[in-house]
Amino acid sequence: MTHLSVVVLAQLAAAQHPTLRGAIVAAETGQPLGFSIVTLLPNGGRQFSDAAGAFSFVAAPGSYVLSVRQIGYAPLDTQIVVGDSTSVRIALRRLAIELPPVTITAQRCTNPGRPDSSDAALRAVFDQLQENARRYELLADSFPFEYTLELSAREVSQRGDTGDPVRRRLHFSSEQDHPYHVGRVVEPAWGAWGNPDSFVVIHSAELQDLGNPTFVANHCFSLAGRDTIGGETLVRLNFEPAARIGSADIAGAAYLDSTTYELRYTETRLTRPERSALIDTRAMNFRTRFHNIAPGVPLQDSLIVITTYRYGPRAKVIDVQRTLDVRFRRAKPGGTSEHP
């Protein structure tokens, strides 16, 4: 059970808009939990706490629901009454999820959507994946940033010959987002990706996809327990598109840190590529590695895509993407305006 202690420090002279102040700590240690997401409902706003776990809202007197989220900790929603000057101390307990043995079974997805409460471990891990997505969304909204991708493509012929890699760099901002939609996993290029009449973009289950309500509503999720990838033992959460989807879509797995539940990798594949603009493609397999650009907020660090073809001179193409730098337009909480 999550512990909450609320202390009303003082009732001062009434201001036009009284302020709610608070601090978030770990229940087990009392250490501050910086970069927690704090929401005041209704209509009070949403923000990250600072590095010391502190936050504040300007709010009229009345009753509110204070919602606090931190990656790797049990969520908390509590009713509070805001007066002229109210201070609260929130203590969150670390999650303890009992994971099943590794179980990887292919099942037809006939009941897509958010897992229900019948499987507590699955629901808890799924919620942590969504928490990763919420943290990215809030960071992008509150502290917009730009980043550069270096792309390298290398062809392998049917005889096994390897061509020289073709490299280019593209520049993006956190404000550019084409959300997941059924039937649009393969879509015409947009923005820096190039001419939409000549190029297509394929979704590969980025964090924005995994947290997208439409993506969740059209995929089934299953917990595969602990698995190893990139030399790390991580928590694996599988996802499959709904059986009713007849177009190309995304299937695969997300891998979360077994202690912090931060997203570390995704491995995905394009389903039914022949039902898209990629009619000559036999298969596309993706591996994405993530790294934190702010505390508990992951962004793609690298992506490897292997595409195999049904016919033609190319046997496969190996694409590699690397995120070279991230530049915040203003200093983010607990950090500077740049990240390597």
Rank of each mutant, 00 (worst) to 15 (best):
G30K: 09
A248D: 01
T260W: 13
Q208A: 09
H171S: 14
G53Q: 02
F57W: 13
T336V: 10
T323N: 01
L76S: 06
R244W: 14
P298W: 00
P61R: 04
E240H: 05
Y73H: 14
R69H: 13
K332G: 04
A96V: 11
Q300G: 10
A121S: 15
L9Y: 01
A153T: 07
G44Y: 02
D209K: 02
L207Q: 02
P295C: 13
P298Q: 00
Q31L: 08
F199S: 14
E28L: 12
G194T: 04
G335T: 01
N292S: 13
P42G: 04
G252H: 09
L278Q: 02
Q107G: 08
I250E: 03
G160T: 06
T281C: 11
H219F: 14
F55T: 03
L303I: 04
A14Y: 05
P179V: 12
S63D: 15
I97K: 09
T323F: 01
F57T: 05
L270P: 00
Q321G: 11
A60Q: 15
K332R: 15
H339D: 01
P18N: 02
V81D: 11
P298V: 00
V182A: 06
E150A: 12
A243D: 10
Q47V: 15
A224E: 12
L149W: 01
G334A: 11
R46T: 15
F290N: 00
L9S: 15
D227R: 01
P188G: 09
P340F: 03
T281P: 03
Q16H: 08
R21L: 10
D197F: 05
P188M: 15
D249A: 06
D161E: 13
L129D: 00
G30E: 13
G231N: 08
G211S: 09
L299C: 02
V68D: 08
A217S: 13
F172H: 00
T39F: 13
A294P: 05
T103Y: 11
L223V: 04
L278R: 00
Q16C: 03
L139A: 01
G230R: 03
R272Q: 11
A14F: 04
V102T: 08
T271D: 10
E232S: 15
W193H: 15
R159C: 07
V7M: 01
G194P: 07
G246I: 07
A243E: 06
V317E: 12
A13E: 14
S247I: 03
V182S: 03
R108W: 03
F143W: 09
D161N: 07
S157T: 14
R134I: 11
N285R: 07
A54V: 11
P179Y: 12
A243H: 12
S5P: 08
I24S: 11
S49I: 12
F126L: 05
F215C: 14
L139M: 15
T266E: 08
D141T: 09
Q176D: 10
E137F: 15
